[in-house]
């Protein structure tokens, strides 16, 4: 069985308002697609993503998400302040359905994601720019 990963360029989400952005993310997650956002979510967007996820949870199919932001924590303070003022975000965010993503863990030199493919992957999911497929680890 295959696991589908969609890489979402920053430009795809740039024009969307917060609600549209969450809808875009969750629509894919609910179809068992793991997504990698080129531009990481801000903390407020992360909180909104959690709240939007809670609204979508149902007893049958969808139990939630796993996500991780590889952020600018390691960058210098000056860069972080400049990014904050300009509204620019660095890093990326990976989001997946909890039924497929067993764990996302920060290792000393990388972010490690353990995924499983117990569920049938959708075949009708539309492709987006940068979409790719990865084999089960």
């Amino acid at each position: 069985m295959e696991i589908r990963l969609d890489f979402i360029p920053a430009a795809t989400l740039a024009a969307k308002d917060p609600v549209e952005k969450m809808d875009f993310i969750l629509e894919r997650i609910k179809r068992n697609v793991i997504i990698v956002l080129e531009e990481g979510l801000s903390p407020r967007e992360e909180a909104e993503l959690i709240a939007a996820t809670m609204r979508e949870i149902d007893a049958r199919d969808f139990h939630g998400i796993e996500f991780y932001r590889l952020d600018s924590r390691e960058t210098r303070l000056r860069e972080r302040i400049a990014n904050y003022i300009s509204g620019k975000r660095s890093g990326l965010t990976i989001v997946g359905p909890t039924r497929m993503v067993e764990a996302i863990k920060k290792e000393p030199d990388c972010i490690s994601m353990l995924a499983k493919a117990e569920v049938e992957c959708p075949t009708d999911a539309p492709s987006v720019a940068g979409s790719t497929k990865g084999r089960k680890r």
């Binding site: 801000s42 903390p43 407020r44 992360e46 909180a47 959690i50 796993e66 996500f67 991780y68 932001r69 952020d71 996302i104 863990k105 920060k106």
Partner: peptide, 17 residues
């Protein structure tokens, strides 16, 4: 428990913001 979870990071990031 491991403190470096996304939930902890999100809570602290929101308070900082």
């Amino acid at each position: 428990e491991d403190p470096y979870t996304q939930v902890n990071v999100t809570i602290i990031g929101n308070l900082e913001a």
